[in-house]
Computed example of a mutant assay.
Amino acid sequence: MTSQFFVVGDVHGKYSLLTDILAKWQPESQQLVFVGDLVDRGDDSKFCLELVCRLVREEGAVCLMGNHEWMFLRYLDDPVERYGHYQRNGGNTTINSLLGRALDAPVDPVADAASILEQYAELISQIRSFPYLYETEDYFFVHAGLDLSLADVRETPDYDKIWLRQPFHQGINKTGKCIVFGHTPTKYLFNSPVMTSQLWQTADRKIGIDGGAVYGGVLHGVVLDRQGVREDHIVGLINSYTVVDD
């Protein structure tokens, strides 16, 4: 029976970091949660998607919808109109990874979307089923944030759950639950000129866990229980280590 959560930050195609952080996960006692953004910008989006989707199917993991999964699906559904936006946000790396090409290979938006839909029908169907919010007795897990001005934050539009930044970061969490999110690298939450390996934690119980792994930062694997953060496993350009909160 799981008594803790193991929550993984934004991966963005960094497959080697993903496998390193998953080596810290204890499946017998920890519910595995991904906050989204498995794809784009990094080297191995295909392997990241396939591994996480298998963990969802076979191990009961939860993977939230991130804005990059959302952009990927919108591109596949309308490659003519949506490719430009997806390309500007690192989408070519995912398209080429899935089609087995060099990451900088030329992309034919329409033909490549058709090929991906044909070759990865089951995978795409599973990505479409990713939830936008995962709620437990003590936590809300969401990719980007929640509209804290609402009487019921669950009513936050799905679009906002994957795109929110400052209104959520600066708002006051009155939900009675801790909100765990990714999307915005903690460097920016701390207004730091350099990447940081620290979690962003606030007095009103918000925890930002995007360590900016694809930008030379770190990937977090955060262990939570009812009391809050118990451990923070960190992998990246620095040596792997764990921070333990007693």
Rank of each mutant, 00 (worst) to 15 (best):
A111D: 07
L148G: 09
K161C: 15
P109E: 06
E122D: 09
L133P: 15
D112W: 03
P157G: 12
A144Y: 01
D147H: 04
P157A: 04
L150P: 09
A121M: 02
V110S: 02
P109Q: 06
L148K: 08
F130M: 09
A111R: 11
D147P: 03
D112Y: 01
I127S: 12
Q126I: 07
T156Y: 15
L123G: 11
V110H: 05
Y134R: 02
D160C: 14
E118W: 03
E155P: 01
I127K: 07
S129L: 11
S115W: 02
P109I: 12
S149N: 10
R154D: 10
R154F: 12
R154N: 12
A111Y: 00
A151L: 15
L148Y: 04
R154T: 14
S115Y: 04
R128K: 13
S115T: 03
F140S: 06
A121H: 06
V110F: 03
A121Y: 09
G145F: 02
D108P: 00
D160N: 07
Y139D: 01
D108K: 02
E118P: 00
I116T: 05
P109D: 09
A114W: 00
D112L: 00
Q126D: 11
A144C: 05
A121W: 02
D108W: 00
G145M: 03
D112P: 00
A121P: 00
Y159N: 07
F140K: 12
Y132F: 14
D147E: 13
L150N: 08
Y134V: 03
R128H: 13
T136A: 04
D112V: 00
V110M: 06
T136M: 05
A144G: 05
F141N: 07
L148H: 08
R128F: 13
L150E: 06
Y139P: 01
E118T: 09
D112C: 00
L146H: 07
S125C: 12
E122R: 08
W163K: 05
S149Q: 10
V153T: 09
T136W: 15
A121L: 09
P157E: 07
Y134P: 13
D147N: 14
D147G: 10
P109G: 02
D152T: 00
Q119R: 13
W163C: 13
A111H: 08
K161A: 10
W163G: 02
F141V: 12
I116P: 01
F141R: 03
E122S: 08
D152H: 04
T136K: 06
D112G: 00
V142L: 06
P131M: 05
L164N: 12
E137W: 01
H143T: 10
G145S: 04
V110T: 08
L133M: 03
D138T: 14
S125Q: 05
A151E: 11
K161W: 04
L117W: 03
W163H: 14
D112K: 00
S129E: 10
F130I: 06
W163N: 10
V142T: 08
D158H: 08
L164F: 15
F130N: 14
D112H: 14
D160I: 02
F140T: 02
D152F: 04
L123F: 09
A121C: 11
D158A: 15
I124Q: 11
P157C: 09
V110I: 12
A114S: 07
E118R: 15
F140W: 07
Y139R: 14
I127Y: 13
Q126W: 11
L148S: 10
